[in-house]
Amino acid sequence: MKTLAFVAIVLISGASAGLIHGAVNMLLVEPYLDSATEIENQSLFASGLAQDTAEFRAEYEGYRSWQKSGMILGTVVLGISIGSLFGIIFALSRNSLPGQSDVKKSFALAGIMWFALFVVPFLKYPANPPTIGEADTLALRTALYVSFVVISGLGAVCFYKLSKILPSGKKILALAGYAMLISVAFAVMPENPDKITVHADLITGFRIMSMLGITSFWVSVGVFLGLFWSRLDPYKGTPRTYN
């Protein structure tokens, strides 16, 4: 029962936060995606590969509607996925997280993971809208992005562990170590090979909205899991030794 309750609140928290992420994306990000895909359409028309006909528009609108439904489905699945990682780390690190309540602890962990797994990688490899990103470079870009997320994530875990064994006056050394690791990774790892070919306003607006969407997920999952845990603590009264 404890195990089922634990898995249930983790999955429900992730799915709920994913739904909020999807709703925010529909409101804030989709207009930019529409603008970017329209640029792709204009390129097709200019190259003669397609013609701007009513038939083309009907097919295009239908396809975009299908992809937008995938936005909601995808963010819910992504929320369950990332929420599962969040639940695992929360369960294992709860005793050592800052804060007096489960909500504060959960929110603190969400903030750390938001920063290490999203903000830091985003600064090196920011989100791009459609029209930017060659198919030929996809494997390289994926490898670079995943590597940076792993470096930042594992670095955060290692230096967080280090901070726990350092004396109180020297904990800042762990933060400095993480900053140094990320600085080296920034300097050593290659840039995104794809060139920016669209107007700066579109890129900047898209990236801001993308960041707001992701942030809405981390805020939501932190609050939801903390609230569920405080109400239904699946391991209440059970000694925990993970730190």
Partner: peptide
């Protein structure tokens, strides 16, 4: 890929 196309771009994952 096509179904999750918009999520990939919105969440910062590499896409094309």
């Amino acid at each position: 890929h096509e179904l999750t196309h918009d999520v990939r771009h919105a969440a910062g994952f590499p896409c094309h």
